[in-house]
């Protein structure tokens, strides 16, 4: 029984890990940021899952309802979403500048160019 009760979290973990994998394994800078977004959004889902009360309703007070879902994680995630988009924006700005400076947004090419540069300043 306990097994089934946790399935929701397991799906979240699967999502998180696919985002995490994109961040680590992909070499394209924009793609990495997308992975990061997926990773973060999945963590948000985890938080929101914590807040759910079965039989509860959205936390807006009304005389009709008795049981409400926990509002606190919602607040935290509102904050986290905004933090996430702020990070993404900054990351994309960096990607644009890197494209201008290196002519590419592929990790391995950039590293190669860096090595060359270090070699030439020797």
């Amino acid at each position: 029984m306990n097994f089934l009760e946790q399935y929701n979290y397991w799906i979240v973990i699967l999502l998180m890990m696919s985002g995490f994998y994109i961040v680590i394994a992909h070499g394209n800078l924009v793609k990495k940021l997308m992975g990061l977004t997926i990773f973060q959004t999945s963590v948000f889902i985890l938080y929101i899952s914590i807040s759910k009360v079965i039989g509860g309703t959205a936390p807006i007070l009304d005389d009709q309802y008795e049981v409400y879902t926990n509002p606190l994680p919602h607040v935290l995630i509102l904050t986290a979403i905004v933090v996430g988009v702020a990070t993404t924006a900054l990351g994309l700005a960096l990607a644009v500048r890197i494209k201008e400076a290196y002519g590419t947004v592929e990790e391995d090419v950039i590293q190669e160019k860096d090595l060359q540069q270090e070699g030439s300043t020797e």
Binding site: G91, L94, I98
Partner: peptide, 12 residues
């Protein structure tokens, strides 16, 4: 220009 790349890596 390497500062950009360094910053990006740090960001990730």
């Amino acid at each position: 220009r390497r500062s950009l790349w360094a910053s990006y890596q740090y960001l990730i």
